[in-house]
Design a protein around this nucleic acid. Structure first.
Length: 325
DNA sequence: TCGGCCCTGGGG
DNA sequence: CCCCAGGGCCGA
């Protein structure tokens, strides 16, 4: 489901709700995610303070100050948490004594929303939804909930932040904002893969998924089936700008909600109302009224305008060009 | 480099 | 029943 704009919206929503808060207890469902949360991680994060929220590509990164290992003995090796003693010990608003964190100890909670993940902060009184996988209590009234009905998501805890960042930078390309023009041109023209596959490849640019690949290709007036190697320098630049542009606009609209997606406080996105091509098969192209076409590239549905995004330069265009010269 | 697969649920 | 879905991994 969620691509970069949706994940960014979740992070922005949750930042003020989570930063500085202490995780008081944790519980998890029995069903496994694609990358499952290990029960021992619950014990490790309880008592930890949320130091910050970040996004890298489609990944959500929650930096937490590690709980102290010596802590209360009852904490160790417990999968099930949530005792009153913990609440009182760590959440006393009057206590300004520093929490017993290991010096310099930092961990990162890394989440991926897969196709159907939702990460929200809600009142505990809200009825528990289906497919809830993880819940972290923040105080007596509020909890952070991660649900994912298709279970393609991921929730993991890493202890070495620098190592995790290095690993992610090795696996992911640059963020779509301010991509170097020469980097992008080389990445595109150096392969015979088609443009749709290129945009979906997280090592080329991080964060683009099926919706925004189609929308960016429409804005750049490029056919998803074109090979990277076939692009001119000018076309590469159009695509680079289109990606940045569509991502920026989508974030401004709080992402797109088609089925499941909600932001960190449960709000739906709004960019689905601005789709030019995605999910609009057969409807008129916003630029030329030709019906939007549907084809399959890189195993994914691809929506585009055959007239605005021609696969090959048409005879008419060739003629027009030669006349110009 | 590509299809198949991991899941659940909704719609035709 | 069939096919489809904002993603990504793994094996031919």
């Amino acid at each position: 489901m969620p691509e970069l704009p949706e994940v960014e919206t979740v992070v922005r929503d949750l930042r003020p709700l989570l930063e500085g808060r202490t995780i008081l207890s944790a519980r998890q469902s029995k069903k496994k995610l694609r990358r499952p949360w290990k029960p021992q991680w619950s014990a490790e994060v309880v008592g930890a303070r949320v130091a910050g929220l970040r996004r890298r590509g489609k990944w959500i990164l929650i930096d937490v100050a590690s709980p102290t290992p010596p802590g209360p003995p009852s904490l160790k090796g417990r999968g099930e948490i949530g005792t009153r003693a913990l609440c009182e010990r760590f959440d006393s608003p009057n206590s300004d004594s520093p929490l017993p964190f290991r010096a310099g100890g930092v961990g990162v909670l890394r989440l991926h929303l897969g196709m159907s993940g939702q990460l929200t902060v809600v009142p505990k009184s809200e009825p528990e939804p289906d497919h809830l996988h993880l819940a972290f209590a923040l105080d007596n009234e509020t909890e952070l909930r991660f649900r994912d009905h298709r279970r393609f998501g991921a929730a993991e805890l890493f202890t070495d932040r620098a190592k995790l960042d290095a690993e992610m930078n090795a696996e992911l390309g640059p963020e779509p904002f301010g991509i170097g023009a020469s980097y992008f041109r080389d990445a595109v023209t150096g392969t015979k893969r088609n443009l749709k596959a290129l945009l979906l490849d997280q090592t080329v640019v991080a964060g683009v998924g099926n919706i925004y690949a189609d929308e960016a290709l429409f804005r750049a007036k490029l056919n998803p089936g074109r090979t990277g190697a076939s692009l001119s320098e000018d076309e590469c630049e159009r695509l680079r700008v289109a990606i940045e542009d569509v991502m920026t606009r989508a974030i401004e609209s709080r992402g797109s909600t088609i089925r499941d997606y909600v932001g960190g406080s449960g709000l739906r996105g709004g960019f689905q109302n601005e789709f030019a091509v995605y999910g609009r098969t057969g409807e008129p192209c916003p630029a030329c009224d030709a019906p939007i076409a549907l084809a399959r590239y890189a195993g994914r549905s691809s929506h585009f305008c055959r007239s605005c995004q021609p696969l090959a330069v048409s005879r008419q265009q060739k003629t027009a060009r030669s006349r110009k010269r």
